[in-house]
Write a protein that binds this DNA or RNA. Structure first.
Lengths: 277, 277
DNA sequence: TTGACAAATGACCGCCTAGTCATTAGTATA
DNA sequence: TATACTAATGACTAGGCGGTCATTTGTCAA
């Protein structure tokens, strides 16, 4: 549905400028050049639109990071790549990133709060995985605190990137933060965050990740995808889930086929998790 | 005026829970147990109330930090004290701090935006002054970036402090961040922020700090203060501004007399700046 | 050209908002 | 007690909000 995409694009602009609450459905429909009724044909409420935007961006963003961390051949460039890909994502989807910065703690309502915290924890998990991969057992005492430092850097420097008018220099930024992180990992002795992530709020155990859930995502992707290779890959992956026959390499290749297709990003992410690639 | 204070207290609670926009004047008056009309006798609009709250807290907070940095006898505990006093302030005025975290980038309107950025820059200036005092010329290349790192830490760990339910351990927190800062100052070689603070937005040169402006603040404080010592100190300071006669030590003592009085905090801050204490 | 169906419209609803102002209550002085 | 004045009230206005739905428009096949 083209209209749905149009609404998401235009509303993103408005939300980035004004925030969620301050942007009315009227403004959105006006910018789209459609009527109010048409809006409610695509989304059953303003809230649903917001949740859809969050999903779209966070899935993209997190799967990018996850892919980078998992597929890093060596540790040499991992930290740099992590920062680079993160800031590049924020830069590319700057409109969403701006909203994210503004509304993060706002939690307009419960469902949005739940969703954001869910993605937030996935992000922390990805960073923690990276820290463990990079520094191993040497940093066991300080690793949770280190994750927090990394998150600190990302937050503040992303803000600088998004809201200052200077031209971003992503290479230097990634280098600078990678250096800082390495320095802290090497010399820090007094951590503050020590007990892992105190979940601010207990998230109902998500069923994502089970075989059935992944198949549901594959079916959904199948409906939305046109291209034949992606379609075939999805079908094969579904069959493989039901009755395993293929080798690891073949499965990995199939996932690789769909990983960059807009409608398959989350499906690919779940599959990578499932097969532990 | 007692009512004004009541409204500020109760509205602070509501704003911290829900944010500015989501809190209506009706809710505020209900919690205060007063009528809507009574609200508009104290504040001429909801916006004026918000701006007053921002002023009250930021003046308190910044003057605390400024005092700590200026009066540090040696560099040994300065960094620790800075972090400690900052987090203690945030902890004490947690309701305001929560609002501040939530609404920072929101800029409901232009006047609030201007105000926040003004205080924001004062904060950066105070941190920069501390960095220079601590590390001198050794960190010239990286000092602006270091300021940004300090701000990063403060942001994220304040959030942890405010929104997690764990008991805060301010000593450890201040120690931990002081160590991190020292480590970075010692080892960092690749700064990202190099050109000083690119003012995101040019702030109209505030007249605060001129002799006339300070006298106006003294007059305002005089109206609100009851205690005789503070009153006398204010009168003497005003006379001194008009016709200088007293020694540095006497002036400093007079400022010290008023520095902790709620209605004189900003006046004292401006005077310290004026006399460069 | 007609009829059938889907897509799109925008007037309309109930609700809530910030802010106003004629009216009333309370209090201090003469 | 009468008068004068301030403090406080809450019904009211105008306007914006999210969301609905009877109606119109557009697009096909027959």
């Amino acid at each position: 549905m083209v209209k749905k995409q149009l609404i998401m694009e235009k509303s993103l602009e408005l939300f980035a400028e004004q925030g969620f609450e301050a942007t009315s459905v009227q403004q959105i429909t006006k910018r789209c050049g459609i009527s109010k009724g048409a809006f409610y044909l695509s989304f059953k409420s303003k809230e649903e639109l917001i949740l859809a935007l969050i999903d779209q961006f966070m899935e993209q963003f997190l799967s990018n990071i996850d892919y980078t961390v998992r597929n890093a051949k060596n540790n040499e460039n991992l930290l740099y790549d992590f920062y680079y890909i993160s800031f590049a994502s924020f830069n590319k989807y700057s409109n969403f990133a701006k909203i994210f910065m503004k509304e993060q703690a706002h939690s307009v309502n419960n469902e949005m709060f739940t969703k954001l915290h869910y993605y937030y924890q996935l992000h922390e998990k990805a960073i923690l995985a990276m820290v463990e991969k990079l520094y191993g057992d040497e940093v066991n005492e300080i690793k949770y605190d280190l994750v927090y430092c990394i998150k600190s850097f990302m937050r503040t420097y992303t803000e600088l990137l998004l809201f200052s008018n200077t031209l971003p220099d992503l290479e230097t930024l990634a280098q600078s933060l990678a250096e800082k992180t390495n320095i802290l990992a090497k010399h820090m002795t007094i951590p503050y965050v020590t007990h892992g992530f105190v979940p601010l709020f207990t998230h109902p155990q998500n069923e994502e990740g089970t075989k059935e859930e992944i198949i549901r995502f594959i079916d959904q992707s199948l409906e939305e995808v046109e291209e034949s290779i992606e379609k075939e890959s999805l079908v094969l992956l579904k069959e493989e889930l039901l009755t395993p026959t293929l080798s690891q390499a073949l499965i990995k290749g199939l996932i690789e086929n769909i990983r960059n297709h807009p409608q398959c990003i989350w499906t690919a992410y779940l599959l990578r998790n499932y097969y532990n690639f």
